[in-house]
Every structure is written in C-alpha cells, then in structure tokens.
C-alpha cells in the first residue's frame, strides 16, 4: 500500500491565510480529523502520525494563525479566535463535523473549538496540555517560559537571531531523551520561527492566557464538554504527566486517558506508534 500523499494547501480567510497539510481522500462519508500543533512547532509535528491516520480519515494539520507558513496578523492570539480560524477553515472545505486533536497550545485551541461548536466536534484528543480557566494553576505552574513569554517585548528582543538556541533548548530538554529531534527536524521549526513576526505571534499565545481563562470560564458556565475526550500526558522529561487528564476532567464529562509511557512533552514525535494505538480505537469508538 502506498503512503498517502501529504499535500500543502492554503485557505484564504480574509484577515488570515492558513497553511495546512492535507492527507487522505475526501470522499463522502469519510470523517475528518483536525490536528492542531502548539509552541514552538507547526503542523509538521504530526508528520509521523498523518500517514496512518490518512488511511481512515481526511486529515487536516493547519499552521495556527501567526505560525509556520500561515500569515501573522497583529492580533487575535486568544484561543477563541484561533479556534474560529480553524472553524472557518473547516467551513471553507465544507466539513461539518470532525474529530479534533491538539498538542500543547493546540489543546486549549481545540477546547475553544469544542465549546463553541459542541455538535460539530465529535471527539477531542488533548496531548500534554491542560485547559486555562479549569480552576487550577496547572497551565503555567513550574514553567518559567510562560512568565517570560508574557513579558512585553523582552523575549522577542533576546531570542531574535538566536531562535535555534532558544527553540533548541525546549526540543532537547522537554522530551524523555535529548535526541527526540534530528538536526533537520529542528531546522524546519527554526526556519518557521525565524520569519519576521513569528516569535511575536508565538509569544502572543502566552500573552492571551488570561483572556483564554476568562473565555473558558464563561463557556463552561453553560456546561462541561459532552463529547468523548482522550487526554494523554507524557510522564517523562518536562511532560505534564497526569496533569493533562486531571485538567480535562474538570472541563469535560466523558474523559479517558492518563499517561503515555516513555513520552515526555513531544508525544506525537516521541511515541507516534503508541499514540496511534491509543488514538485509532478512540476515534473509531467516538460517535
């Protein structure tokens, strides 16, 4: 069987143009899976799981607003706006319902999509990230880069021209092992984050966290998520371990998951096979 082709595509949504990876046939009745990356990454982080997912699903892996090869608007880095970008991407492709998978900041983005469109999101998979506004301090706790990124202007000024040094730190130290990423893989992320405006856009994900927490608390006042949720954390390195499951249990009614053994923060790149073994049965069982 041939590897499914991964296409690069763009969606012009007026104020933002999203770059996305697309794989799998788009024939009637075939369900769609949306894969949403975090910081400091792009849709490329899903490269190891896309081929197998694409045998069963239409797979879409966008670069979030401001990141990767998407355009970089001045504003709109709260997760509700990012989620609305994704919603408009789905509408532009005439996709009415999908499964949504998010890693790192992609997970709160998927949460925002799921609370805004409770019928359209069939199931949620959250990888190594809690939800801001879940009633805990889990999001930033013990992570200095959250507070550093929150400072206006300073992180851009210190990191500009040294993107490989800074991003390399996270890639080497947040996984279970220091060799999770090859030099080529790191170079691709560094390329994306070295573009003018990309650092700013990435740090703005963090600067919007207070807004995200307020938005999420307001959305949760109307009730927790009801679609099935699979929440997995990495128990090694700087992975969040059981924190991911615990956070999602506070914001959704039907949550399963726990830790993915052997993984640090970079679950989809450290343990792609083991992730697929959890992901495929979960997606198949979701309504």
């Amino acid at each position: 069987m041939n590897e499914p082709l991964i296409e690069h595509a763009y969606a012009d949504l007026d104020e933002v143009k999203l770059h996305y990876l697309r794989a799998g046939e788009s024939r009637a009745g075939r369900p769609a899976v949306l894969l949403v990356h975090g910081w400091p990454q792009t849709g490329a982080m899903w490269r190891k799981v896309i081929p197998e997912l694409a045998r069963h699903y239409l797979v879409l892996a966008p670069d979030l607003r401001g990141l990767g090869d998407s355009t970089r608007p001045q504003t709109g880095y709260d997760k509700r706006t990012l989620a609305n970008d994704l919603w408009r991407l789905l509408r532009s492709l005439k996709i009415r319902r999908c499964h949504a998978v998010g890693h790192d900041w992609g997970a709160p983005t998927v949460f925002a999509l799921a609370v805004a469109h409770r019928q359209a999101v069939r199931s949620v998979v959250a990888l190594d990230a809690p939800v801001p506004g879940d009633g805990s301090e889990a999001m930033a706790s013990g992570r200095w880069h959250h507070f550093f990124h929150h400072a206006p202007d300073l992180p851009e000024a210190l990191v500009a021209g040294r993107e490989a040094v800074y991003l390399g730190h996270f890639f080497r130290h947040w996984g279970a092992r220091t060799d999770v990423f090859s030099a080529e893989e790191i170079a691709e992320y560094v390329r994306a984050y070295s573009r003018p405006g990309a650092l700013r856009a990435g740090f703005n994900l963090y600067r919007a966290m207070a807004q995200d927490a307020r938005d999420n608390r307001r959305a949760l006042a109307k009730g927790k998520l009801k679609m099935p949720v699979l929440a997995l954390g990495g128990p090694e390195g700087r992975g969040r371990g059981k924190l991911a499951l615990e956070s999602w249990q506070r914001v959704a009614e039907n949550v399963q998951g726990g830790v993915l053994e052997g993984a640090g923060h970079w679950i989809a790149e450290e343990k792609p096979r083991e992730l697929l073994d959890r992901l495929l049965p979960f997606l198949a069982s979701a309504p």
């Binding site: 301090e137 930033a140 706790s141 013990g142 992570r143 200095w144 880069h145 959250h146 507070f147 550093f148 929150h150 400072a151 210190l158 990191v159 040294r162 040094v165 800074y166 730190h169």
Partner: peptide
Amino acid sequence: QAGRRWHHAFHRTPDLPEALI
C-alpha cells in the same frame, strides 16, 4: 512568588540565559 519572578527559574536553567544575554 509562584513563578511570577520568572527570571529566578530562567537564571537557574543551565547555559540558556548566558547564550541569550
């Protein structure tokens, strides 16, 4: 102060702050 003084943990990170500063 629960991480608000982020530079404490940043400065304790080996090598990285030197390289950026």
